[in-house]
């Protein structure tokens, strides 16, 4: 086994697996490969240490509390959405009602003509009457 073959075998080696006689023989003969194998073993030991870290005992409580908070947020946002919808609807309804009332109260075309004529006539009549009155007084 040469160094390249050793490295390939090392990369394929599973935890606890027997690497084989040739691998062990090369490891004992080649100082560079021995160091490499030791360093790699050290790295996998480090990974094992990290992987064995236990999760905080309070994490599940934290998760359930976060879920409750999320549910509450959703509830509040639904409530807010309903409030906004209700206010918007009220405003639209009020606006439409105002338009409708205005329409109901506004005079028809015939009314407008009549009232304009009446007021215009009245004004004229008033001036005329006053003038007549004045001229009567002068007499």
């Amino acid at each position: 086994m040469n160094c390249v073959e050793f490295e390939i075998r090392l990369a394929k080696l599973k935890s606890g697996e027997n690497p084989g006689d040739e691998f062990i023989k090369h490891r004992n003969q080649c100082a560079k490969c021995t160091k490499l194998a030791n360093e790699v073993e050290g790295l996998f030991q480090l990974i094992e240490v990290d992987a064995s870290k236990t999760v905080s005992p309070f994490l599940s409580t934290r998760i359930m509390a976060a879920l409750d908070k999320k549910a509450m947020e959703v509830h509040i946002s639904i409530q807010k959405a309903w409030q906004i919808a209700a206010v918007s609807l009220a405003l639209i309804a009020g606006f439409n009602l105002a338009l409708f009332m205005d329409y109901r109260q506004s005079p028809t075309d015939a009314d407008s003509v009549l009232s304009e004529y009446f007021f215009a006539g009245n004004a004229g009549m008033e001036i005329e009457n006053n003038w007549l009155k004045l001229s009567t007084d002068e007499d």
């Binding site: 490295e7 390939i8 090392l10 990369a11 394929k12 490499l36 360093e39 790699v40 790295l43």
Partner: peptide, 9 residues
Amino acid sequence: RMKLQKAVK
């Protein structure tokens, strides 16, 4: 794993 070994080397 080969990349890891390369980093070690």
